[in-house]
Simulated scan of single mutants.
Amino acid sequence: MNKCKKFICVSVGLICFTLGAIGIILPILPTTPFLLLASFFFVKGSERFDIWFKNTKIYKKHLDSFVKEKAMTLKQKMTILLFADFMMAFPLIILDSLVIKCIIVLMIIIKYYYFLFVIKTINN
């Protein structure tokens, strides 16, 4: 990967990390999805940033259990599901295409299946 792509990945990772950190304070922003994105971009962009990120308290508190055990707290699951539903509601309301609406509903069903039956729920 060239330096420009690595720079972009690290930059997007830092933006996602910042949004995830803000989400800890503001309940309207979901923390876990932004931190997962940050992790993805840090892995792609820089080994040094990836190591730094995985050693932060934020990573250890919010993502470590998911990465190691494929498990989340009920609060994390609900936050992600509700935020995703909120975002998916807009195209359902705005678009007229029945095909697109069916695809979005199918995505919602798959998302709920995955969160309910694949990802384990752990206690705080």
Rank of each mutant, 00 (worst) to 15 (best):
P27N: 08
F115S: 02
K61A: 02
E47S: 15
F41T: 10
K3S: 15
I104R: 02
V105N: 04
F53K: 08
M88T: 06
M1A: 04
K68C: 04
Y113L: 14
F7A: 12
G23A: 02
I51M: 11
E69R: 12
P27M: 06
K101A: 04
K6V: 00
V12W: 03
N55R: 13
V43D: 13
K54C: 07
V10K: 08
F66G: 01
G20Y: 00
E47T: 13
D96C: 14
I109L: 15
F34P: 01
M87I: 12
D50I: 02
C9G: 08
I100Y: 03
L74V: 07
A71N: 05
L37W: 11
I51R: 11
P33N: 12
I94L: 11
K68D: 09
S46Y: 06
K70L: 13
E69F: 09
L74I: 10
R48N: 08
M1D: 03
N2P: 09
F83Q: 00
T56Y: 03
S97G: 02
I109F: 14
F83T: 00
N123S: 14
M88W: 10
I104L: 05
K75R: 13
F7V: 04
P91F: 05
T18D: 08
K68S: 09
G13Y: 05
N124D: 12
F7Y: 13
F42T: 02
R48I: 14
L92R: 01
K101W: 02
L82P: 02
I28W: 06
V99T: 11
I24M: 14
H62L: 10
L26G: 06
P91A: 03
D64E: 15
Q76F: 02
L14H: 09
P33R: 12
V105Y: 07
S97D: 05
Q76L: 03
I58Q: 01
F53P: 05
I104C: 02
K75E: 14
D64I: 11
D64Q: 14
C9H: 14
F41I: 09
M87L: 15
G13C: 05
